[in-house]
Design a protein around this nucleic acid. Structure first.
Lengths: 260, 260
DNA sequence: AATTAAGTTCCAAATAATGGAACTAAGCAG
DNA sequence: CTGCTTAGTTCCATTATTTGGAACTTAATT
């Protein structure tokens, strides 16, 4: 679960790996816990953690267990505020929300996961931090499947091979073959659907967003409760969701580079 | 502006310093810009940035300028959700908001700055990320001054010496002597006030929060528009703000350590 | 008081970072 | 188109940092 792919980024990579171990754990870890999860010798790990604490990336709880440091919030706040893609997408998300009245998500693909970058909803009942920055598996979310569909074939194969399927609901897709077939369908239609595949009672329609060279891949979705949003209604939003995605891509082309 | 205090945290420290340079800049920096701001040789800086990119901590815009990476959002989202202090404080912030009807902030002291950790307000008109994770100078905010007042004398002197005073409004305190006097007053009263010192038209009342050994220092505040919140009204909230801070400290004592 | 586990410090050996210089690519002026 | 300037990238012997085993201190448990 906390096993990060063995990176070759030297000292920094190892430090971030430790950070990842601490981030991935549900409950607070103490020194020995981290020691077991990492494959570093004690002396080494101890210094790495000391450095991370010194830099404010890790905080120490009173019982000597570790948590993520607040400096990360500081960085993230700036990352979010200054993110060009998010800034460009923002008005389009707003518009899509006004057109549908439902929650709109913006997420980017990283590996086989989706990182949620923004969210627009009517009642801000749930705290934003509970969503923004959160990740979800790409294979069982609308945004994720839309994003996967925008990958070039060779790259798609690589990613599909990395997916670790897990059953969240009775509708969750559970093998690469089914997923692959669905992605072909998404490419034809231009829209992806999440039919209560990640969370029971929640469905959505999504559309892919990508940069001209497809190095950057993202997606936008409209989400709602399944009891209220019938498949027909969902499908009726497919067009405007694609339109929003298209408008964001158009804006990216004009605003992010002199010529496309 | 981006000059971080020369740290001795080895390779990691240097990498984070680069991250800080990129975070501190208003507009996107290109390679040479970062080179000028850091005092690293080109080859070195180039590798450092490459590693940061590889780890997802820095992203590259299409014009080769750098921004903060989305992986920081991922970390921050977890840091926020799992933060023990914030979790403990949350219900008390909620209650304070219900009692006053105004915006409630929770912030922790880091050096001479305050990092905002949480916020409760009625109309979520402003995006949360625009506040949470944000920092502000301690000397001109209610939460910040309350926090400073909880520092032991020797530590306070150290921090006061580090403050770089800057004028935000006509009311901003501009020298250590005045600030020091005000902190003595705050210690007597148990409350700090921001009388439009950071932002014109915005005032607040705050109270300090600290761990038993005062290694961890924070503050809670009630903020409102000055045209509506007269000094009298503000003062009438002093008691419940102190009470909220006290309740949070009591909860910390019982929940964070077996015995105090 | 004895025993086990948890956390911390130390230092010679191994490894990774450094930084100067050489190199390529991009932008611009004549 | 050519030469000139600036921006960005790669290379590698030298240097400095990280490594990891073991010894050590402190805290918890029996």
């Amino acid at each position: 679960m906390a096993k990060t792919t063995e990176n070759a980024t030297g000292t920094l990579g190892k430090a971030i790996e430790v950070l990842d171990i601490i981030a991935s754990s549900a409950e607070p870890l103490r020194f020995t816990d981290v020691l077991k999860l990492s494959d570093q010798p004690r002396g080494t790990l101890h210094r790495q953690i000391s450095n991370l604490i010194e830099e404010g990336l890790i905080s120490v709880n009173r019982d000597n267990s570790y948590g993520l440091g607040l400096r990360l919030l500081q960085f993230a706040s700036k990352a979010w505020a200054s993110n060009q893609f998010r800034t460009i997408a923002e008005p389009h998300l707003q518009k899509l929300h006004e057109q549908t009245g439902e929650t709109v998500h913006l997420g980017v693909l990283r590996g086989t996961e989706v990182i949620y970058l923004d969210k627009v909803e009517s009642r801000q009942s749930v705290r934003m931090y509970s969503q923004i920055g959160n990740t979800a598996p790409a294979y069982c979310t609308g945004v994720g499947k839309a994003a996967l569909s925008a990958l070039p074939d060779d790259e798609l194969d690589v990613r599909l091979a990395q997916v670790e399927f897990r059953c969240f609901t009775p509708n969750t897709l559970l093998d690469a073959k089914t997923l692959s077939a669905e992605i072909r369908q998404i490419r034809l239609e231009g829209n992806a659907y999440d039919r209560e595949e990640h969370e029971a009672g929640i469905c959505c329609v999504a559309a892919p967003i990508h940069s001209y060279n497809r190095h950057f891949i993202a997606g936008v979705s409209v989400t709602g409760p399944a009891y209220r949003i019938t498949p027909d209604i969902l499908q009726s939003w497919a067009g405007i969701t694609r339109a929003a995605a298209g408008a964001i891509m158009a804006n990216m082309a004009t605003q992010l580079s002199p010529k496309m």
